[in-house]
Simulated scan of single mutants.
Amino acid sequence: MNDKIRLEALSAFLKAKRARIKPESIGFPTGTRRRTPGLRREEVAQLAGISTTWYTWLEQGRDIKVSSIVLDCISTALQLNNDETDHLYDLALEAKSGIVNPIKNQPELTPSLKRILTELKHCPTIITDRHCHIVGWNSAAAHVFLDFEQIPNDQRNLIRLVFTRKELKALAVNWEDFAKGFLAIFRTYYGQYLGDEWYDQFIKEMSDSHPEFQDLWQESQVSKAPELTVEFRHARVGKMLFNLTSFQVQGDMDLRCSIYTPVDETDTENKLKRLMKSVPTENYLK
């Protein structure tokens, strides 16, 4: 990512986070002359203890120097959580925008990761790389989501599939929240690998092809490891509830493991067992 794109991303992020804060929630009058939702720039500057001019330049994407102390003040003013603060640092500190090694080949899963996928028989599990490309999955994931084996490898990107496959749109009860969760993780990688031009090309392609992607991307949600409950309406077995746990795998490959655990005291696990028994498949472990 060159500096121009980095600064544009920083500008969009600051605007999105400023717009979400209700003025009255922190003691500012709502007034009738506000042209945009959320705080004004001068209000953010006041809360952060910096000049309005300087904050305006930062939000406009001007190439100015910024210290970690000031970033912390802005983070507090905008009520950013830890993941959002880290993302702010990634975008604001140009030292992080160096060239990174490109992903040339699909990472080879270690024997231990393959064993984990095999052992999690009734927990749909997907392993992705830093581009959100699917590099491993188990049979449960293939039954609940898609038969990933039937998708060409170069199209096996989780973000792309969420926006292009009608099966996934029909599966999630609240598809928009479902998509936002994946985009929040994707934005974390986007900030961490500022030197990888693949992200800018992919985001442009998705934005041009899918207006829904552009709308949700502009919300600038960030999350390294969301934990949430998701509800699916599977075409064969109906309602299924899963707890999603997502974490990065330690090692050089920078992989992420996303595990969908059936919610206790629901019929989800039994439904999954029946589904896997009634629709036999090959071992989808790659």
Rank of each mutant, 00 (worst) to 15 (best):
D83H: 10
P262S: 05
D83T: 06
V70K: 02
F182P: 00
F13C: 07
R256E: 14
V66M: 01
R41F: 04
R274V: 06
H122N: 11
L194S: 14
E108Y: 00
V135F: 02
F178W: 10
D267Q: 15
Y189N: 13
E43Q: 08
Q250I: 14
G38A: 00
D147K: 06
F145K: 03
N105Q: 14
T261R: 14
T110F: 01
R40V: 10
F178Q: 06
L109I: 04
Q221D: 11
T85F: 08
V230A: 10
L183S: 02
R33P: 05
A184E: 06
E8G: 03
F13R: 09
L117M: 06
L7Y: 03
L58T: 00
T118Y: 13
V100F: 11
I69G: 01
L161C: 04
E119H: 05
L158G: 00
V144N: 05
P152A: 02
T229L: 14
N243G: 09
L58C: 00
S223P: 05
G38T: 01
K224I: 10
T229W: 08
E149Y: 09
V249I: 15
R20W: 07
N270G: 12
L93K: 03
S51L: 04
F28N: 04
I5R: 13
I116Q: 07
F182C: 01
A77F: 04
D90C: 14
L120C: 02
Q106T: 15
A179N: 08
A184G: 05
Q248R: 15
A141G: 02
Q46Y: 09
Q218R: 15
K204Q: 12
L78F: 05
K114G: 07
M1L: 13
G61R: 03
H122V: 10
H122E: 12
N243S: 13
E42H: 07
T56I: 00
I159R: 07
E24Q: 14
M253V: 13
E231A: 12
G181F: 01
Q218K: 15
V173I: 10
Q155Y: 13
E269I: 15
I126C: 05
V162C: 07
Y189V: 02
E227K: 15
T118F: 10
N138D: 04
T268D: 10
V144L: 06
K204F: 01
Q214G: 04
L228K: 15
S139H: 03
T30W: 03
Q218A: 15
S209R: 12
A19G: 06
G191D: 04
L168G: 01
R18A: 02
L78Q: 03
E212C: 03
T128A: 08
I185Q: 09
L71K: 04
D254R: 15
E282V: 09
R274F: 09
I203H: 06
R236C: 10
Q106S: 13
R165C: 03
V162E: 01
T229S: 12
R156P: 08
G181C: 10
N243A: 11
H122I: 13
L120H: 06
N105D: 13
D3Q: 12
R20Q: 10
I159E: 02
Y189A: 11
S220E: 13
K180A: 09
A179S: 08
V66H: 01
T266C: 06
E8A: 12
P102T: 08
L14M: 07
T56K: 00
L80R: 07
T229H: 11
Q155D: 14
G238P: 15
V44P: 04
A235P: 05
I134M: 06
F28S: 08
L216K: 05
L117V: 02
P262V: 05
V279P: 04
L161I: 02
H131E: 06
T188H: 11
